[in-house]
């Protein structure tokens, strides 16, 4: 599948954190054609295994989370409106007047209602709105709504991925399905080149709730190199210049205390040699990504973090560049195939 089609398919999947069973099968299917073995664990982490050709293969673990932020139904009113709260970091300011799918007994179309400007008293105009004051309208009365929807049902946003100018795409879940696309780009690339090491490609769950899938997945896989693929902030007019990265300039390779300096340096060297675009992402803390988990899993796994610049993170129009996805996949695959071992 070409990368654009792949990204569309991935971004449009629905897998709200904690209910990734909705998409685990589809992800496994995508992995299957490139892997020697694919399994789904008890938490719905999807684990692809690609055997290495070396005599004494090491183990490389590559993770990218595939859960998405969303909403969860917390109450059904007699009028049929649904109350809800966030699953993961949802910004209440940007979800008004949004189309959604309520995953009830069946998938239901709904909209998040907003008060028309005419009815907002002047003193409230500049006030933020709280999620607990918003409702989802599924067009049914209370009785029918209760029949179709239960408290605890998940809600995902409707925002089909679209192609834009200059090889860019926007969609609801580029964080982090573009990372999953990189996983598949890595697998594709590894079909073409010889690699000594066994590679575990893991699409993880519940990252948005606290890196939970990675914590579980890393316990059972003993790796001597970890590669985490996630998104970072794309360059925007009012973003700080050392915390946001331009699109189309390749993967942002992290450097910082939690990252293996040796592997990061070698990865950068490789990118230079092979003419693969990259940029440097200085990370002073533990990065807040799955790299923080891998680094301290079991005895500790030396880890690198490759991030795809994404604008408008945690909105329904997260924007990435397809060329960055391809470049990141190539860099990671080449590094896996060519890495030096001590």
């Amino acid at each position: 599948m070409e990368c654009v089609e792949l990204l569309k398919k991935l971004s449009n999947m629905r897998a709200v954190s904690g209910r990734e069973n909705m998409a685990a099968g589809e992800i496994a299917e995508l992995f299957r054609q490139y892997c020697d073995d694919v399994s789904i664990d008890a938490f719905y982490n999807v684990i692809g295994f690609k055997k290495g050709q070396g005599e004494k293969p090491g183990n490389v673990l590559v993770t990218a989370h595939y859960d998405e932020i969303g909403l969860i139904v917390t109450g059904i009113e007699d009028s049929g409106f649904l109350r809800f709260t966030a699953v993961g970091g949802v910004d209440a300011k940007v979800i008004g007047a949004m189309e959604v799918t309520v995953h009830g007994k069946e998938d239901l179309f709904g909209v998040i209602g907003v008060k028309p400007p005419h009815l907002i008293p002047p003193e409230d105009k500049n006030k933020g709105i709280k999620m607990e004051d918003m409702r989802i309208d599924i067009g049914y009365d209370g009785e029918k709504a209760r029949e179709l929807v239960s408290i605890g049902d998940m809600v995902s946003f409707n925002s089909p991925a679209r192609e834009l100018l200059n090889n860019r795409m926007a969609g609801k879940s580029m964080d982090n399905r573009s990372g999953v696309a990189v996983l598949i780009e890595i697998l594709k690339e590894l079909q073409k080149i010889k690699h000594d090491d066994n590679v575990y490609i893991v699409a993880t769950v519940q990252e948005e709730l606290g890196l939970i899938g990675a914590i579980c997945a890393t316990y059972n896989i003993k790796a001597d190199l970890g590669i985490v693929i996630d998104v970072c902030h794309g360059d925007m007019p009012d973003a700080p210049s050392d915390e946001a990265f331009p699109l189309d300039k390749g993967a942002a390779v992290a450097i910082g205390p939690i990252i293996s300096r040796k592997h990061a340096r070698e990865c950068i060297k490789l990118a230079k040699e092979e003419n693969i675009s990259y940029q440097i992402d200085p990370e002073a803390g533990d990065t807040g990504t799955e790299a923080a988990v891998l680094a301290v899993a079991r005895e500790g796994i030396p880890v690198i973090l490759l991030s795809i610049p994404s604008k408008y993170m945690h909105t329904t129009v997260e924007m990435i560049s397809v060329s960055d996805v391809v470049a990141t996949g190539r860099l990671a695959a080449r590094y896996i195939a060519g890495r030096s071992k001590e």
Partner: peptide, 13 residues
């Protein structure tokens, strides 16, 4: 100093 990282793996070992 960045979140008690090293002690996690040392204790595991």
């Amino acid at each position: 100093e960045i979140g008690l990282k090293g002690a996690k793996t040392s204790t595991f070992q």
